[in-house]
Design a protein around this nucleic acid. Structure first.
Length: 435
RNA sequence: GACCCUUUCAUCUAGUGGCCAAGGAUAUUACGUUUUCAACGUAAAAACAGAGGUUCAAAUCCUUUAGGGGUCGCCA
């Protein structure tokens, strides 16, 4: 069982999408279930509707899942398990105030040592619980620091050993009775029987904590981990919300298509036999072990190149539908324009210019008027050569005086692909185009 | 500051001791083709982080220095 566990606190990030794609692919390869878990334990930061937005994006990328759950549904189970740890003396009740903890942190900073929980409450057991509740004294539950190092074999990073004090006595149940991320995550993975967790490198330091939780809870199934290097922006820093390209929604708005985005994200930091491929093709050779260990920079130029290649592969009629047509010829026309466009947005503006009313105010306006009239009265002409000869003869124009205004009249642009390639595809729209 | 990860062209990578005076792709530049801009074709420029070892032989193994990144919450 594999899972993708996004939190509904912001736009889907390409790093997250990459995690989702990899989890899906590996589940598919292993022929096991792939589930979605929405991690919505932070009520403050949850954004209504983000969960369905995330699901819609997964759908666009054709990443089918066996089920969707919300972490908040499991609140009762989380509390029960936390209490169990408390009763087994594997966790303790902590009544330290935020002020006290803050002072501890300040001290640590002042003394130039790493902050760790002071251990002030570590002897407070379950028996205190009733009294604290009666006295309305706020408390949290902390798990006890492990007494041996936690070791982990990461499929990408290799063996990692974490010292007990690095794990620390961290909070598992908050003052309001809700579980913290690490606790909820570990419990849910345990209950669902998640056997392999693929996630971003920023979770690397959470792994020993989650392993520790599962160990104390008596979970004896082995969970494998694979931590993906993070994606950096052009400056070499972690891609954040401030980087437009980090948002999948933004990439869509720019005219990048899902097949190309998926292709790029799979290719990034990977050994691939080819550069251009579809997800089903990648399923044939994809291996987690091949993912590079170091962070990679996001290169939008490469994405543009890949997007263009995928647009070339798209079915003609389907491509035309992106611009409001249902005509394979328009799809073919768009593909010709792939010479100078890489996104559907760029393509759309080229196609639009062809069908938009033309501007006759330019230096070629006079010649354009002449041609417009000739075309309006002309019979249907099949080939560009015949068409060209016909207009030339009727207008008496030639060379620059002929080609420049003709191009402007037919395409609305001064430069562009060969008119002889374009003509056969737009000839049935000629009256609309040449006006 | 502590802990962890990491280091081949601008970018993504090939490379697992000899086939590497380091290959491919994107981006860049030049030329060709073209009524035009592109695309395309051809070519050019471009990297083993530094220093020490081991070895007949090192991008590849070891040591060390330097750099980059991540994480240190009652966020996920």
């Amino acid at each position: 069982m594999l899972r993708f566990a996004p939190s509904p606190t912001g736009d889907m990030h390409i790093g997250n999408l990459r995690v989702a794609i990899f989890n899906y692919m590996v589940a598919k390869q292993k022929d096991v279930n792939f589930i979605i878990r929405i991690e919505d334990t932070d009520k403050e930061r949850n954004i209504a509707g983000k969960d369905t937005e995330i699901l819609q994006i997964l759908e666009k990328f054709a990443l089918p899942h066996a089920s969707v759950s919300h972490q908040s549904e499991n609140l009762h189970m989380h509390q029960t398990l936390a209490i169990r740890l408390l009763e087994e003396k594997k966790a303790f009740v902590c009544t330290c105030t935020p002020e006290q903890l803050e002072a501890d942190r300040e001290d640590a900073k002042k003394n130039r040592v790493t902050y760790r929980y002071s251990g002030r409450c570590s002897y407070v057991g379950a028996e205190e619980l009733v009294k604290l509740k009666e006295d309305k004294i706020p408390f949290v539950i902390r798990i006890k620091t492990p007494d041996a190092p936690i070791t982990n074999h990461d499929l990408i990073k290799g063996d990692i050993e974490t010292a007990p004090n690095e794990v620390d006595s961290f909070v598992i149940l908050r003052e309001d009775g809700t579980p913290t991320y690490n606790f909820a995550c570990a419990c849910d993975d345990m209950i669902s029987g998640v056997s392999l967790i693929i996630r971003g490198e920023d979770h690397l330091s959470n792994t020993p904590k989650q392993k520790h939780i599962k160990q104390l809870l008596g979970y004896d199934q082995e969970t494998e981990y694979a931590h993906l290097p993070i994606i950096l922006n052009a400056e070499g820093k972690k891609m954040s919300k401030r980087d437009d390209a980090s948002s999948v929604k933004w990439l869509f708005e720019q005219g990048f298509i899902p097949d190309a985005i998926a292709n790029y994200l799979i290719l990034l930091g990977n050994k691939a036999p080819t550069e251009i491929f579809t997800m089903p093709e990648a399923l044939e050779w994809f291996k987690l072990e091949n993912i590079s260990k170091f962070p990679v920079k996001f290169d939008i130029d490469k994405l543009r190149f890949i997007n263009r290649k995928h647009l070339e592969l798209m079915d003609d009629k389907r491509l035309s539908s992106l611009f409001g047509f249902a005509d394979a010829d328009i799809g073919k026309l768009a593909k010709i324009y792939l010479e100078e466009a890489s996104t559907t947005n760029e393509l759309e503006s080229k196609i639009k210019a062809i069908f938009a009313p033309k501007n006759f105010d330019s230096e070629w306006g006079e010649q354009m008027r002449i041609m417009e009239k000739i075309i309006a009265d002309a019979p249907m002409i099949n080939t560009f050569d015949e068409f060209k000869s016909y207009i030339m003869k009727e207008s008496g124009l030639k060379d620059k005086n002929f080609f420049n205004p003709l191009r402007l009249l037919l395409t609305g642009a001064e430069h562009g692909p060969e008119l002889s390639d374009i003509y056969p595809l737009i000839k049935s729209y000629l009256l609309e185009v040449a006006s």
